[in-house]
Structure formats: structure tokens, C-alpha cells
Design a protein around this nucleic acid. Structure first.
Lengths: 159, 159
DNA sequence: CCGGGTATGTCAAACTTCTGACATGTCACA
DNA sequence: TGTGACATGTCAGAAGTTTGACATACCCGG
């Protein structure tokens, strides 16, 4: 009747909210919500902002590169890129000489918009960081990374 | 030309991947991907599983309660509930005496499906937990919670 | 008794993202 | 040379999620 294996929990927990997965989801949802709200005033969505930020740091990334960096599929990122391109925030060559990847770059307008949005996003990040003991920040970053690595990190994206 | 405010970052970082927000997103994406894959074999989506888990712990939760617990809108959860109801995994009264909220309950079949899916999800959670030093687990959970609280946690859901 | 305020369930439309598929381009290697 | 493996960009359709709106139902204070 009952399951043969006793279903041993990953760690002692009174209820679901004690699970790492639940907390992770909660924090990520809170972050997403805060960013959505903050970016709306700048006329950007979260994936759009992520895309601009990536391109600012490493100009010339391809659609596939950006998709990996933003944890979405190539197809989704392609939609985002078209939007940014139509808005004049990035530019992409129509063709390329060597491969198939089209390197994207921020336009001046894109840089300006990013600068404005960045301060809003950084304010959010600062709120998060200030909420945790400074001594634990490095460990937190490391543990988040370890967890992602442990799950393969292929993110299930693309196929 | 350049921005008047120097845009002070929340904490020293060489590149974007050092930011808490990025790591959080990465871990959450990895978890989501792993759960998606694991649950597919059980014929459940992540929101469906979350819903069943919540109902197992606290039978009688309403659609709105479940939406809050799963960090989605009422409307999204409503779709999920209909799916689970059609699949015979939960039941909900058509009407109620006192309020407007309709209390949902797992069916026997729902409990069975949950038990099966749970072991798959717990295996994922165990992989995550085992990737971090045991001594830091409690601190990690606390810090994730602190961050969510710091962002208001209203998640931006509903309106 | 009645009013605003709040919470809930639900409908409809728009948007976002994913799955599946295909053509193109490069590279390693026989 | 050419062939298989792999990565990229893109199209089309499906699925999931959100925004916006509305009616209903309780609660509290006048």
C-alpha cells in the first residue's frame, strides 16, 4: 500500500518551507518581482536588462552566448534581441564573414538606457546584500554556485 | 556624457557573475531545469508538484493560498488546479457555505502520485544539499530568507 | 442597516517562453 | 576530398504566465 522506500528527506525539515529548493524559489521570485517593478520605469524587462548587462561586459556575444548567460533558450533570447534591436538599443550585423554567430553590440542609446536601469537594479542588489551578515557573503555566493554545479547546470535549456 | 552618479556597485565585483542576483538566478534555473526533467517522468509540471506538496502539508488551502505558496498569480494557479482536478489528483467543492474560498484536497490518487514524484525531487534536493558544507546549511537557508524578506517578498504577484 | 475596504474566483487577451524542427556553417579526421 | 559531429540562427506551433477587469462575499465602522 505505502511506498516501499521510506522517502528519506534530504535534511531534517518540519515543513516544506525548510527545504533549500523552496527558499531558493522564494528568493528568486522576490528578486524577479523587485526587478520587474524597478525596470518597468526604465522600459525594460528582466531578460532585456540581463542581455544589455551581458553585452556591456562582453561586447560581441552571439545570440546563443546570451541565451546561455541569461538561462533561457536561444529562441527566447532571439525574441529579446529583436526587441532590443527594434528599440535601437543594440545592433547586429545582418551577415558575418567567418561563422554563423552574429556578434551583438550596444548602441550609444543602449548604453545610456543600461546606465539608468543599472542604478535601479543595483539598489535592489544592495538591499539583498545588506540583509545578510557581511562575513557570510562570500560563502553564500560560493554555495549558490556549488548547488548550481551539483545540478549539472545545463539548466535544461536548449535541446 | 557619462552618468552623473558613478553607479556604486552593491559589493566589489569583477564581473556580473559575482553578483548575488546572478548566482541566485543561476541556481534557481538549475533547480527548475532539474525538477522539470525529473517530474516529466511522473507526468507532473513543477507548479503542479508544488501545488500537491502544499496540499499534502496543509489540506484545504484555497486557490489564492496556493498561488501565494507557489509564487505565482491566482490566475496561473487556477489553471494548474483545473489541470490537477481534471487529472483526478485533487478535488474541490463547487460551492462553499461560509466564504468564497474553495478548499482543495488531495485525492488518494493525488497522494500516490505525489509520493512517487517526491522521491525524485528529494533526490535533487539531496544533490544540492550535499554540495554545500553541512555547517553552512542553516546559514544558507537563513540568508536566502533574509534576502527575500529584504525585497518585500510581495513577489510582485497579483495586483 | 449600509458603506467602504479587502479578499477571492474567474474570464479574456496579450505576452513570454518553451518544444520541435530545419537549414546553414565550421571543424576534425579519415 | 568528403563525411560526420557539433554549433548557430530561425521558423512555426504549443504551452505557460501575466496583466486587466469584473462579480461575489466577508468584515468593520459609521
Amino acid at each position: 500500500m505505502s511506498h516501499p522506500e521510506p522517502v528519506v528527506p534530504p535534511h531534517p525539515a518540519q515543513d516544506i518551507t525548510e527545504h533549500v529548493g523552496y527558499r531558493l524559489k522564494r528568493s528568486a521570485a522576490a528578486l524577479r518581482g523587485a526587478m520587474d517593478k524597478a525596470l518597468r520605469g526604465h522600459g525594460l524587462t528582466v531578460p532585456q536588462y540581463a542581455c544589455l548587462e551581458l553585452l556591456d561586459e562582453r561586447p560581441g556575444l552571439s545570440n546563443a552566448d546570451l541565451a546561455r548567460g541569461a538561462f533561457v533558450t536561444r529562441q527566447s533570447m532571439n525574441v529579446v534581441l529583436r526587441g532590443l534591436q527594434d528599440a535601437g538599443l543594440i545592433r547586429r550585423p545582418a551577415t558575418t564573414e567567418h561563422g554563423r554567430a552574429l556578434p551583438a553590440h550596444l548602441t550609444d542609446e543602449g548604453s545610456r538606457r543600461l546606465a539608468g536601469a543599472r542604478s535601479a537594479v543595483y539598489a535592489i542588489e544592495r538591499r539583498m546584500v545588506e540583509a545578510i551578515p557581511p562575513r557570510r557573503l562570500a560563502a553564500l555566493l560560493a554555495d549558490l554556485d556549488r548547488m548550481a554545479d551539483a545540478l549539472g547546470d545545463e539548466s535544461g535549456n536548449d535541446g
